[in-house]
């Protein structure tokens, strides 16, 4: 801080904040406004396939091409804001009415939230013992164990989901193993069912749960557990009364890191879930198969509204324990 209070440094400060700020405003914030605008437009058979509502995006008059982007985006934002109430009055909520009236969409949202919720709980149930055991492992093993948890997180998501196809298929390795052991006589039907989606989500997101849990658990003062044992508490009591409550920040961070992206998950239900209805898949097919861009945008806006609560909570409580930090 002290380094940036000198008058000569004011410009450096502006650039350091300004460049990433403008970038994110342009490529993270503005895109949401554009989705919002499109969700209130009508689909057409033109190219691009919609009838725009609200202010048009300013054309490039300077001839600077892509370099003029930040300026045009600002101009665009301005025209939204100055349009004010007149613009709001002209909006068309037809797409949202459509979403509310068709049970397909409502079911897809509900199903996604349910699948993400159950998967989050399952991930926690598997991840917690693993994180706890890691903190109890000998000191010199811990960096290696950490690396072993991180490695799958760095490995392609797509490949890890794909790996399960060969295991879960009717003639896959799991069924072969179980049948040759005589445990089942008919192949289990897991592939292309919601069960496979649960397995896929738990497997893919497990590192996101374990890392923040490990971060909080490893900072737990062992003296607390010793004191509790000295006072006669059984290990299980100490766990319920001390370890679990103190690891709550890690539990929250991990759960948000799993729940929020899992709700909009596309790859896992697409590859493993068969007909399993999830909103990410609905959005994808509205966009790519039905070419209904405005409806796909409305699906995205509603999904975002559902997730705003968890995202704000994640930023407030989870981010400090963020696995990456």
């Amino acid at each position: 801080m002290a380094a940036f209070e000198g008058a000569s440094a004011r410009w450096a400060r502006r650039i350091i904040i300004g460049v990433p700020y403008v970038w994110l405003a342009a490529f993270f914030l503005t895109p949401f406004l554009i989705v919002l605008k499109l969700s209130l437009s009508d689909a057409t058979r033109t190219k691009p396939p919609y009838q725009p509502q609200g202010p048009d995006f300013p054309a490039d008059e300077s001839g600077w091409g892509l370099l003029s982007l930040p300026w045009r985006l600002l101009e665009y934002l301005g025209s939204w804001l100055s349009g004010g109430w007149a613009f709001l009055a002209a909006l068309d909520f037809e797409n949202f009415v459509w979403l509310a009236e068709d049970s397909l969409y409502i079911n897809a949202y509900a199903n996604s939230l349910w699948i993400a919720g159950v998967s989050t709980v399952l991930t926690l149930l598997i991840g917690y013992p693993l994180a706890l055991a890691m903190t109890r492992a000998p000191e010199k093993w811990r960096p290696v164990l950490m690396l072993l948890v991180i490695l799958p997180f760095w490995t392609s998501f797509l490949i890890r989901v794909y790996a399960w196809i060969g295991i879960l298929k009717p003639e896959g390795l799991l069924n072969l193993a179980l049948m040759s052991l005589g445990l089942i006589s008919e192949p289990l039907e897991i592939y292309n069912t919601p069960t496979a989606v649960y397995i896929g989500i738990v497997y893919s997101y497990l590192p996101f749960m374990v890392l923040p849990l490990y971060a909080t658990l490893s900072k737990l003062d062992p003296a607390l557990l010793e004191a509790s044992a000295d006072l006669g508490a059984k290990p299980l009591t100490s766990f319920w009364r001390i370890t679990l409550p103190l690891s709550l920040p890690g539990i929250l961070a991990g759960s948000f890191l799993v729940f929020i992206p899992a709700t909009g998950e596309f790859v896992i239900p697409d590859l493993l879930g068969g007909k399993t209805l999830m909103i990410g898949k609905v959005l994808y097919s509205e966009f790519f198969n039905n070419l209904d861009w405005p409806l796909a945008s409305a699906v995205a806006v509603l999904l975002l509204l559902l997730l705003v609560g968890p995202i704000v909570l994640f930023q407030r409580y989870g981010a400090k324990q963020e696995a990456l930090g």
Partner: peptide, 9 residues
């Protein structure tokens, strides 16, 4: 936000 934002969005 981008760390948790669903990719389809």
């Amino acid at each position: 936000a981008p760390l948790v934002m669903p990719e389809v969005i």
